[in-house]
């Protein structure tokens, strides 16, 4: 699930001017032809850097995103839901593993990525800095955050970097269950007792802003990403993905008689696009920079897991091992 709302760094064109023009032309022609880039190919530094950043953020989002849902395994109502929730969380951690390896093929070690996550140097999806108060919150994450991530991931799976595409193909195949599981859980609550409906509506209200944040700042505010689109690093603009999500899921929310906490949300008959109130982007910036309700807890939990497992890894390490980055 979980990839989305990538924060791109401002494109620095001076770094492009140092690139070999002949190699650059070959590289761009390959992408233009629809061929994938593989790890040993020549690539511009900016391409490498932005892909590492994006895939790494996606991997961190998987591993951190499994925390709010993971805490609900023991409290999930009924044995079957516990099993399903457990299977989903296991999938997400598996996705992190696939993505870390894809980023690693570009030259950043998994050790370094995990260190950067704990030290707050690299980011993960902002939504996971919010708490899951009730079982209904967990259901909203399973359905709508996954849905948002699928919109993003299906787009990125058509990108230009081979290892990322391979990882995303596997990930998307597993997501089919997550989406149905999440939808089923929300429908169960929404069509249940008055109390259940009230819980799911409250959770939906709480999560609407983070969901709108999920796809990242509006295009007019975000950094220049044209070159990243040309190189098929970024496959759709933040606003386009948000529109696609609204198109697919708002009707599914409304058909359950649930409401969304934005009085301006409606499909504009003239433009064919959704009108909505911009979510608070100052809050987005504040939370992504560390000041959200759960940032400290998420990183502390991850840090503890790393620290407590360190002796096991040390004990298992074969002193003759030599590091080679994964092939593909």
């Amino acid at each position: 699930m979980y990839g989305g709302g990538n924060v791109f760094e401002a494109t620095k064109f001076d770094t492009l001017q140092n690139e070999d023009p002949v190699k650059m032309a070959e590289f761009e022609a390959r992408i233009e032809r629809g061929e994938k880039i593989e790890p040993n190919d020549w690539m511009p530094e900016l391409y490498r850097k932005q892909l590492i950043r994006m895939i790494e953020q996606h991997a961190h989002s998987e591993i951190i995103g499994s925390l709010p849902e993971g805490t609900w395994i023991t409290r999930a109502p009924g044995f079957r839901r516990k099993l399903a929730q457990m299977a989903k969380v296991q999938d997400e951690v598996g996705h992190a593993q696939l993505l870390y390896s894809a980023a690693e093929t570009l030259g950043k070690s998994r050790e370094q990525m995990l260190t950067d996550l704990i030290n707050g140097k690299s980011k993960y999806s902002n939504v996971f800095n919010y708490p899951a108060f009730t079982w209904a919150d967990s259901n909203i994450i399973s359905w709508l955050i996954d849905a948002g991530a699928i919109v993003n991931q299906l787009a990125n799976a058509k990108g230009s970097y081979g290892p990322y595409c391979r990882a995303l193909d596997r990930i998307c195949a597993e997501e089919a269950f997550h989406l149905k599981y999440g939808h089923d859980a929300v429908v169960h609550m929404a069509t249940g007792s008055a109390k259940q409906r009230e819980m799911i509506q409250a959770a939906l209200n709480r999560w609407w802003t983070p969901i709108m944040h999920f796809f990242g700042p509006p295009d007019k505010m975000s950094t220049h990403t044209e070159i990243l689109m040309k190189w098929k690093v970024k496959m759709a603009s933040n606003d386009d993905m948000r529109q696609q999500f609204l198109d697919m899921y708002v009707p599914k929310i409304w058909e359950l008689g649930l409401t969304l906490p934005d009085p301006n949300l409606k499909k504009n008959a003239e433009t064919g696009k959704w009108d909505y109130t911009e979510p608070d982007w100052e809050e987005f910036k504040r939370v992504i920079n560390g000041d959200g309700p759960c940032n400290a807890e998420r990183l502390a939990v991850r840090r503890t897991a790393e620290e407590r497992g360190a002796w096991v890894r040390r004990a298992l390490l074969n002193p003759k091992s030599k590091y080679v980055k994964p092939l593909a």
């Binding site: 890894r313 298992l316 080679v324």
Partner: peptide, 30 residues
């Protein structure tokens, strides 16, 4: 935390000093 198991870990609150970089083969070979 909302999760009592996380609360029971007695994790320090507030900003923590950065962790040291992991040793080279902490994550093993591939």
């Amino acid at each position: 935390s909302l999760d009592p198991r996380v609360t029971r870990l007695n994790l320090p609150e507030g900003e923590q000093p950065p962790v040291e970089a992991k040793p080279v083969l902490d994550q093993f070979e591939t």
